[in-house]
Design a protein around this nucleic acid. Structure first.
Length: 492
RNA sequence: CGGGACGUAGCGCAGCCCGGUAGCGCACUUGCAUGGGGUGCAAGGGGUCGCUAGUUCGAAUCUAGUCGUCCCGACCA
């Protein structure tokens, strides 16, 4: 294994792959398009999941679990949703294998075991969930239903990339049911803010909140709200979506309720999700050419302690002192790892934990013990300092917050300096080629123009920002009148 | 699905053009030394060269086919 990873400047895609593989977040698997999430990557996901889960529960949601399989007849009920996902569905057609008479010891699909009705492996769960909600909802008293599920879904993508786009991925999907349109919209927006809060304050990745245009809208939604993040190569990444589904699914699955006046109406719906893709966003937002850089709030290990010793006697002394320190740090809620394995030497460990993005590294040797100090190294800035062991826990705590803030500020600066206004087509094209990032420009509001711009430049409208300034102008492509600027970018 | 690249030891690669007893680095095992930024020395173990056919006295190498993976694009979270 070579020591260095590919630099961002050399090959951004390769850099990203190197980070994921060498940082031991994930690995390629025996299944095309599917990845193995390794323990370190899964620990990261668990931290993200736990934080989000708490936020969902704090906003009144509960978890449930629905089946992986969706009968085809249910899947096709909401036509736009079905059509949108049809070309990337895995289908179960049989339920049994049998010995292959032509190939000794091998198996074949038993043609006798064909299913009456094919099962679609869920690419998303609106269909199975709304067919279930039909049985749960009769009255306004049954509403709202605020359910989330943590699950895996399958989308048979033609081209996959670790975390960013895999055939199977882990996510959460919230599916709520409401008595009124306004309440459903309020829920949709509320969850968008929850996502933004999480991504910015836990992952330290700044996002832009907005609404998708009709072209980019979720299949079956009336409105799709999104948070968009910017990666270091200037491409945008959709980090989360929240959909106002109107009454589309209620109508498709005949889910009606009686209101206070005993009038029947269809239920209003939302759905919202974020996935393991967020890990891809995290990697691309903060990491550098030395490896991963993880924000303290979700890093599996916030601190790693590396002992430096000669001989067993010194090691024992350091072990003893570090044991005390570990207890203090754990009591203070710090996720800390002590790597006193004799398998690798300090220099190797330093490089390893840098690769894995551990925010703070402490090195402690016999000399330090004598002086009652420890060497503190921070991953984000690659700086080191010597700090007294007295009050070290408080120091580490504030250092972790400082790093968290620093990562966010740095990413925020990058985002702010990469939102550029374009007022002519030439300027627009030039910005896309030379600078990247979000381009704020006027658009005439038509799908045709959006499509044409995508065709010409591969840039799409990432979103119409919430609380967007209304400003008269002319569309950069068509020259027709426009009432506001929207954000364009090339995207993952 | 189109374009490109690649399948040789656990990982990364050379060898292939010009056929002749499979090699390098890392990792692994053992020992000694070493230990404040990917340790040094020494001795070892491990591969029917993706698969199938063909050409040949002889194939990692040539031919045909096949399977798979990655990268770029179209599609998408």
């Amino acid at each position: 294994m070579s020591k260095a990873i590919t630099s961002r400047a050399t090959d951004y895609s390769q850099w990203y792959n190197d980070l994921v593989l060498r940082g031991e977040l994930a690995d390629y698997s025996a299944v095309r398009g599917c990845m193995v999430i390794k323990p370190y990557g899964y620990a990261l996901w668990e931290n993200m999941r736990d934080a989000l889960d708490k936020m969902f529960k704090d906003t009144g949601h509960v978890n449930a679990y629905f089946p992986l399989f969706v009968p085809k007849s249910l899947f096709e009920a909401e036509e736009k949703n079905a059509e949108g996902f049809a070309k990337e569905c895995a289908i179960v057609t049989h339920y049994r294998l049998k010995a292959d008479p032509d190939r000794k010891g091998k198996l074949m699909v038993d043609p006798e075991a064909k299913l009456e009705e094919e099962l679609v492996v869920r690419p998303t769960s609106e269909a199975i969930i709304w067919s279930t909600y039909k049985g749960w909802i009769q009255s306004y008293r049954d509403l709202p239903i605020l359910v989330n599920q943590w699950a895996n879904v399958v989308r048979w993508e033609m081209r996959t990339r670790l975390f960013l786009r895999t055939a199977e991925f882990l996510w959460q999907e919230g599916h709520t049911a409401h008595a009124t349109r306004d309440e459903a919209i309020e829920e949709t927006v509320k969850m968008l803010h929850v996502y933004a809060d999480f991504v910015e304050n836990w992952m330290a990745v700044p996002v832009i909140k907005g609404v998708k245009t009709a072209n980019e809208r979720f299949a079956g939604a009336e409105d799709t709200y999104c948070i968009e993040a910017l990666m270091q190569d200037g491409k945008a990444l959709q980090a989360g979506t929240s959909h106002f589904l109107g009454q589309n699914f209620a109508k498709a699955f005949d889910v009606k309720f009686s209101d206070k006046e005993n009038k029947l109406d269809y239920v209003w719906a939302t759905s919202w999700g974020v996935s393991t893709r967020l890990i891809g966003a995290l990697v691309m937002a903060h990491s550098d050419d030395q490896g991963l850089v993880l924000p303290p709030r979700i890093a599996p290990n916030q601190v790693v302690i590396v002992p430096i010793y000669k001989g067993d006697e010194q090691k024992a002394q350091i072990d003893e002192r570090v044991a005390l320190l570990m207890n203090e740090m754990k009591a203070a809620g710090i996720r800390v790892k002590y790597d006193n394995s004799d398998q690798a030497r300090p220099g190797w460990k330093f490089a390893e934990y840098e690769m894995k993005g551990v925010p703070v590294r402490l090195a402690i040797g016999a000399r330090d013990l004598e002086n009652n100090v420890v060497e503190v190294a921070r991953r984000d800035e690659q700086t080191k300092s010597t700090v007294s062991l007295d009050g070290i826990v408080g120091h580490i705590q504030s250092l972790l917050s400082e790093i968290q803030q620093h990562l966010f500020d740095k990413a925020k600066r990058f985002q702010q300096t990469h939102i550029t206004r374009a007022d002519s087509w030439a300027e627009f094209e030039q910005l896309l080629e030379e600078k990247g990032g979000f381009i704020s420009a006027h658009w005439d509001g038509t799908s045709e123009t959006e499509e044409a711009i995508k065709e010409k430049t591969k840039a799409t409208i990432r979103c119409i920002p919430l609380e967007n300034d209304q400003e008269e102008g002319v569309c950069i492509l068509s020259g027709k009148p426009s009432i506001q600027r929207v954000l364009f970018a090339r995207a993952y």
